[in-house]
Write a protein that binds this DNA or RNA. Sequence first.
DNA 1: CAGATCATGTAACTGGTTACATGATTCA
DNA 2: TGAATCATGTAACCAGTTACATGATCTG
Lengths: 195, 195
Amino acid sequence: MSIKYAILGYLSWRPLSGYDLKKLIADSVAFHWTGNNSQIYTTLVDLHREGLVTQELQPQEHYPTRKVYTITERGRADLRTWLAMMPELPQLRNGFLTQLAWADCLTAPELDALLAKYETEVQMQLLMCREQARRGSVSPARTPREGNLWRMLAENRIGFYEHEVAWAQRVRRELAAGAGEAGGAATPSTGGGTE
Amino acid sequence: MSIKYAILGYLSWRPLSGYDLKKLIADSVAFHWTGNNSQIYTTLVDLHREGLVTQELQPQEHYPTRKVYTITERGRADLRTWLAMMPELPQLRNGFLTQLAWADCLTAPELDALLAKYETEVQMQLLMCREQARRGSVSPARTPREGNLWRMLAENRIGFYEHEVAWAQRVRRELAAGAGEAGGAATPSTGGGTE
DNA sequence: CAGATCATGTAACTGGTTACATGATTCA
DNA sequence: TGAATCATGTAACCAGTTACATGATCTG
C-alpha cells in the first residue's frame, strides 16, 4: 500500500482534505497517479480507523463541508518506521519494452514509427518534469535538506526520461543502419542460443 | 493486461506449456514477474477460450500431462495489432522515491544507510542484468533484427540501473556535503513556495 | 531422506483504475 | 448557458501477488 504513505507523507507536512490530496498527488509528477480520488477517500477512512490521522469537519457557507485530516503521533511513527525500512526496488514494468520484444513481426517503417511515437511521448513527459522542476513546484521545503531531497527526486525523474529518450534515438539509429545492409549476409545474429 | 501479450509473444516464438512460460517469464529479467504461476495458467485458459491459442495434451509416462499451447492465426493477429498500437509510457512507480520524499525526519546516518542499501540493491540487479546479457540468454533471435532488439532491451535495463546507481551515489555525496555545513545559514532553501 | 524439479491448478487478497452519482458556485 | 472548480463519495472491475493443494520423480 504505497498510496497510504504518500498520503501520510503529505499529512506530515500539513493538514489536508481529501480534495487537497487528490490535487497534490495528481498534479505532482512525482507519484504520477491516475485521476483516482476514490482511492484517496477510502484510504483516508482506513487511516482514520487505524488512528493514524484525525478528522476535523470544516463546514463552509457555499461549499460542501471539508473534512480536514491531521496526522497523529502514531501516524508519524508509522510513517517513520516505513521510511527507515527496506528500500523498495524500482519495478521496471515498462509495457513498451514488452512490445519491442515481439516487434520483429512489424515492418521497418512500422517499427520506426512505434519508436518515434515513444520518443516524443517520453520527451513530453520530460518537458513536464523539467517545467515542474524549474518553478520549484509544490514541495514542502521545511529544512534545506528537504529542499535538496525534492530537487534530487526531480533530477532522478528527469534523468530517467533523458536516458529513455537517448536510448530510443540510439535504437532507431541502429535499426536504420541495420536495415540498410539488410537482406541476408551482413550483421550476423548477435543473439544467443535457444536456451 | 500486459502478461497476456508477454505470453502471446513467447507463444509466437514456439509452442510452450504453462510451466515453460512460468520459467521463461520468471527467469528473464525482462518482464520481472513474481513467482506467479497462477496468473499464467488462468491467462492461458482465457486465451484458449478466446481462440487465440490451441491446446494440445501431451501425456507423459512419469510426469503429469503437459498442456502445450500453440498460438493461432487470430492470436498472431491480436499480438500484431497490440504491437502496432500505442506505445505505453513507462510508469515510474518507484516506491523508494516516495520514501525519500518524506525522509527528512530521519537522521543523517539513517538517511545515508537507506541510500546505501538502495544503491547496493540496485547494483545487485545491475549485475544480474549484465550477467544475463553477457550469456545471450533465452532470446528468440529468429532474425538478426530480433537479436538486435533483444540486445537493446537488455541495454535499456542496464542503462536504467546504471543511472539509478550513479544517482544514488550523487545524492549521498551531496547530502554528506550539505551535512558538513549544516546548522542554519548555509545552502539556502532552494525549494519553491507553497503553491 | 530431504529438497529440488516437473506439472497442474484454486482461492483469497491487495492495490489501482474506471465509471458513476450529487450538487452548489464561479467564470467565460 | 455551458464548463470548470469545489467537495464528497460508491461500486465494479482488472491485474498482480500470496498462499495453498497435489503428487510423482530425480538429485545430493
